[in-house]
Simulated scan of single mutants.
Amino acid sequence: MRRAPDPVTAAAQSQGATPVYDAHDLITDGVKAEIVLDGQTYILRITRAGKLILTK
């Protein structure tokens, strides 16, 4: 279930604050997403308990 953007967060983002991402937007298939940093690939997963796990 995705939440609507928080208006306070959206306002903070427009003022140059740290970007905020909904994990469900990154993990579009509901299971995992690959994130690449400096040529290294990491896997971001949402567990059954609703926790995030980032592994190399």
Results as ranks from 00 to 15, higher is better:
L37E: 13
A4N: 02
S14N: 12
I53V: 15
H24E: 05
L44I: 06
P5W: 01
K32E: 15
M1Q: 04
L26N: 03
L52I: 11
T18M: 09
D38F: 04
T28K: 15
I53T: 13
D6F: 02
I46H: 00
R2Y: 00
A12T: 04
T55P: 00
L37Y: 13
A11G: 01
A4H: 02
K32P: 01
V8N: 07
Y42V: 07
A49E: 14
A10E: 14
A33S: 14
Q13E: 15
I35Q: 09
R2G: 00
R48L: 08
Q40H: 15
T47M: 04
R3I: 09
Y42F: 15
A49P: 00
I53M: 09
V20C: 09
A49K: 13
V31D: 14
M1E: 08
T47N: 06
Q40C: 11
A33R: 03
G30A: 11
R48T: 05
V20G: 03
L52C: 12
G30N: 08
I46Q: 01
I46F: 01
Y42T: 09
D6Y: 03
A10M: 13
T55G: 11
L44A: 05
A4P: 00
R2F: 00
Q15H: 11
T28M: 12
A10F: 03
Q15T: 08
G16K: 08
G16W: 06
Y42P: 03
L44Y: 02
D6N: 15
P5N: 01
D22V: 08
R45M: 09
K51S: 13
G39R: 04
L37C: 12
L52G: 11
L52R: 10
L37T: 12
Q13G: 07
L37F: 14
D38P: 00
A12L: 15
D6Q: 06
T41H: 02
R45P: 00
D6L: 05
Q13A: 13
Q40R: 15
R48W: 00
I35M: 12
L26P: 02
T18N: 08
D29G: 07
G30V: 11
A33V: 09
I46Y: 00
A10H: 05
V20M: 06
Y42A: 10
I35H: 10
A33Q: 08
G39S: 05
L52P: 03
M1V: 05
V36P: 00
A12H: 04
I43D: 12
E34D: 14
A11N: 01
